[in-house]
């Protein structure tokens, strides 16, 4: 594995597990679902992988919507 190919050499599993840890961060969790999805997409994940990461992290819901104005 050449160091120059590092970005292409990241296995999909690693990418997804990283995305899961990323999604579990409270600050990330607070952000809208669309923002999280868009960011992961920019990071090279496919829609399928993003959905997978969301399911694995248990953060597939939009938390920011749950606490409405009282």
């Amino acid at each position: 594995t050449s160091p120059l190919d590092m970005e292409n050499a990241i296995p999909r599993e690693k990418l997804i597990s990283t995305a899961v840890k990323f999604l579990l961060n409270p600050r990330v969790h607070q952000s809208p679902l669309a923002t999280r999805k868009l960011f992961l997409k920019k990071k090279g994940l496919t829609d399928e992988e993003i959905e997978l990461a969301l399911q694995q992290s248990g953060t597939a819901t939009d938390e920011s919507q749950s606490s409405g104005p009282s």
């Binding site: 990241i10 690693k14 990283t18 995305a19 840890k21 990323f22 961060n25 600050r27 990330v28 952000s31 923002t35 960011f39 990071k43």
Partner: peptide
């Protein structure tokens, strides 16, 4: 927010 995006980037990169 740009700062949020930067935080996301750093967090993601630190996990890799």
């Amino acid at each position: 927010f740009a700062s949020q995006e930067k935080f996301f980037q750093e967090l993601f990169d630190s996990e890799l």
